[in-house]
Amino acid sequence: MKKEMWAIFGGSLLLYVVIVLLIAVGPAIDLARTPPGPGVKPLTPLEEEGRQVFASDGCDYCHTLQVRPLPEDKVFGRPSAPGDFAYATPEMLGSERTGPDLTDVGNRRGEVWQYMHLYDPRAVSPGSIMPNFKFMFHEVKAVPAGVAAVPLPPAFAPKNGDKVIPTQRAEALVAFLMSLKQPAIPGYAMNGGMGGQAVASAPAAAPAASAAGGYAYDAAKGKTGFDTTCAACHQANGEGVPTAFPPLKGNAAVGDDDPTTQLDTILHGRQGTVIGGVKYSGVMPPFAGQLNDEDIANIANYERSSWGNHAKPVTPAEVAKLRAAGK
């Protein structure tokens, strides 16, 4: 009777431990070693202190610190790459966006704005439901030398005419918020920003339809398809994001008259290959389940004819063949 007890409880415990090692601890050990991306630097002591404030006052419950490769996330910056998190411990990717993502907020908002906003979010952002953080400020009669008071619209300033100055807590927090800038990567134009979105630079005229088995390349569909599904990572200008997402402009696979590599990658995804001498840290997701053969042919042809690329067009039949070959 002891035997059954050991079989059930011991067996289920052992099975669980094996699963946990395989899907949690193992990958974690591996991923903890992800090297920092270019321009990703450790925080200064003051910024680090601000990060602690961010955690202890729970900003993370309303704000995320991760940008997904989805069109709707473009306003927050480029998609986050693994190397971005090398120094982000404890991780604060977050799970809810009651407020906007803050990954790149340092590039969007200035220091003074941050102080005003923390003191009273409604002073700068009507309709906001973010709590005020007045407890991070002192209200004083006279501003000490060398300290800048927070400028506030009269309706939001203390009624008794006191001036508002930040505490150490607020200074550290704002230093951290100002450090939240996705590293500027040379050759990469940020197309996010809360303001307008930079319009994707339209490529030079696409070649005329190359008829093949009743299929005619639809340049407009190719461009829309690319801009909505691929540009988040490869960028509308085809230049990618250095070390994270490879450029398709001048790319060997895209320029190759044999489309196997290009189509196979789009259909089945890819990760960790060396492209033009560089190993990219991002993931290329598979699109076979999402796009039909014609969509893929249009997108592939758009890539093959844009940004100075000139390669032989592909047909949906070729896509279908590789799709059937599967992986």
Binding site: V20, V25, P27, A28, A32, T34, T89, E91
Partner: peptide
């Protein structure tokens, strides 16, 4: 096991910690 895995520090850096979360 869950509590133990969540407490041990060695792999809880950057993306490793995201996996554990």
């Amino acid at each position: 096991i869950i509590c133990l895995v969540a407490v041990l520090p060695w792999y809880q850096y950057g993306l490793g910690q995201v996996t554990i979360s």
